[in-house]
Design a protein around this nucleic acid. Structure first.
Lengths: 340, 340
DNA sequence: ACTGGCACTCGCACGAACAGAGTGCCAGGC
DNA sequence: GCCTGGCACTCTGTTCGTGCGAGTGCCAGT
């Protein structure tokens, strides 16, 4: 039993050393840097077992050992203590995020902050529209047969669409339409708003029917099929910083995946605000991410998750530190957006 | 005279070959691939002169020649013919950009298009606020003492701010305020709108004075000190594609500069819509860009430039092709935004 | 003014030899 | 039964030397 205990301790030491030095770690160095109380030879035996179990591997015969994805997984699940942020870091979060003027600004600052804190690539998802509610619908006439529809959500996100109205629009009708739309939709979740559009057509005053009909298609499109969720990416320069061997061959596929957004967004869909989710290397299924790890968490208030944020980096990353940073930032952003 | 003529022809050939092969080009290869009508020995003499004049250089004593920044400059200024886009490319531009639903979408598509067309990093500037005009100002009451101010510009850009009103807000006052603001500011250029705020305070109906006073500070902030101009960046994966030697050492500084935005935005400030501006290597002054070239142009209608767009890549790039692509895309985007 | 020829200079790829790191295994001690 | 010290072995990365090829500069000839 004390056996297994120590073997795990050895794994932890390997992960820690490898993360900080980026060199395969051998039994001798391990015995020197950590006082495990046993000799290198004993450690070698433990390492042989760990390798057989698939937790570590050696790049080539007679180099040190390197953790495998499975090894990192065990480390994250059982061996890593939550590393509290320093007071300076906490202060940095507040100082950095306070003073943001609008949603775009908040998310922009968040992604920069997270990238700086973790020295990894940071990703922040815009608040998911389907979970947001309508705060206000604005209708503006921009030309004779043209209306601009602006949707403002309770998370501060703004979506706009231009609608062509075949019929001439009576000037007085626009404010009426605005009132009608707002009384119908204000406070309604976007996911549920679509169902109300048909009903609206029937109950609208006769003289507005034409207008409502013209607008309804766009309305459905805006409310129900919210434009693909957006992602803010920052700190890509950190990819180039790490050792060239962090990513097999080139980092081109990873950069492509980050720009593609859809891949990352799908992963973001699974987050919730209470637990930090870690995906390591091959666990990501997607080819381009198979050499990378993601640390993600949802942000939002207790009762409602708005979106996700996290960092992307080499599997060789400081998991405890990044998990702590991601969680702390998510909490703060959640409060910030909940109260606005 | 025919002398100098041929020497320039040699320079052009060197640039073209080096851009396409990425290998230093020697006199022999040059004589084979281009029919200059003279022997390698003669070309060698020309190259010696070109090198003395600073247009080309050799990486090491016995390798071929490589163009210098000065060489590229001469090539761009005097030796490159405008390369018209293929019909397929023109069609791609239309197909790609039509069907964009809003400004964000237009710029997002533009940057992707440009990155794909040129296989370089693409940058697109949001329409500069100070050159835009107010299309509509929206006021929404989101809570007892809180107003949301939304500015919609004629270029489709949307800015929003939350205003805290110390006094209680009379429900009926909000529409009045909206009307007041719009009649005062609709159509006004943002650069000139600031001057009108003080006047507004005096001429406003008495019962609105308090409200106007509360809003005016934010109004000035939104209109006059427009939030830093935004930049959309895409195709960074193309940086990793090129040969590792395209950028000295690492591309980290370049990625940082692109995220910083401010560096690139300053360069964008100088563009105009009529001429494609090319900055080569060291001409960029800024450290991080000293190994890169920028090809930029303004977009907008004839009478009014909205912003800039362009590509960033290694000095070893296809200047004629990129200039053509950048110009064509800028034209199309200009039309698209002018008519919306 | 151009051309062919020739000697010269390097960078680079290839191979050998070498040092260093790290392992696996075995026999002995607690 | 588990740990330890020792030892032989197996690699990789590095260094050095060599040969090759590419490319140049120069010179004499047309």
């Amino acid at each position: 039993m004390a056996h297994d205990e120590r073997r795990l301790e050895v794994l932890r030491a390997i992960v820690q050393d490898f993360v900080s030095t980026n060199d395969p770690v051998g039994s001798k160095a391990l015995a020197e840097r950590h006082d495990l109380g046993v000799s290198p030879a004993t450690i070698r035996n433990d390492m042989a077992v760990l390798e057989e179990q698939g937790y570590i591997t050696q790049p080539h015969t007679s180099a040190g050992r390197v953790p495998t994805d499975k090894g990192y997984r065990l480390f994250v699940d059982r061996l890593s203590a939550v590393k509290p942020l320093s007071a300076a870091e906490r202060r940095a979060i507040e100082r950095f995020l306070d003073g943001a003027v609008d949603l775009h600004d908040v998310l922009g600052r968040t992604v920069r902050l997270l990238a700086q804190l973790t020295r990894q690539v940071a990703v922040v998802q815009y608040p998911t529209l389907s979970r947001s509610a309508v705060r206000h619908l604005e209708v503006v006439q921009v030309a004779a047969g043209r209306l601009l529809l602006v949707l403002i959500t309770d998370t501060g996100r703004v979506e706009q669409r231009v609608v062509d109205c075949p019929a001439d629009v009576d000037a007085g009708a626009v404010p009426e339409l605005r009132t009608l739309l707002n009384s119908a939709f204000a406070g309604v979740k976007l996911g549920e708003a679509g169902d109300k559009v048909p009903g609206l057509l029937e109950t609208a005053p006769v003289h507005l029917r034409g207008l409502v009909a013209a607008v309804s298609a766009t309305l459905v499109e805006t409310l129900v099929e919210p434009s693909e969720d957006r992602l803010v990416v920052g700190g890509t320069a950190n990819l180039a910083r790490g050792s060239a061997m962090d990513f097999p061959g080139t980092m081109q596929p990873l950069l492509e995946a980050l720009e593609e957004q859809v891949v990352v967004l799908r992963l973001m869909g699974e987050v919730d605000a209470s637990t930090v989710l870690v995906r390591i290397g091959e666990e990501n299924a997607h080819e381009a991410l198979s050499g990378a790890s993601l640390v993600t968490v949802g942000y939002g208030s207790a009762d409602r998750s708005l979106g996700g944020l996290g960092v992307v980096g080499p599997t060789r990353m400081d998991y405890p530190g990044n998990m702590a940073a991601v969680r702390a930032v998510a909490r703060y952003v959640g409060h910030l957006l909940a109260e606005s």
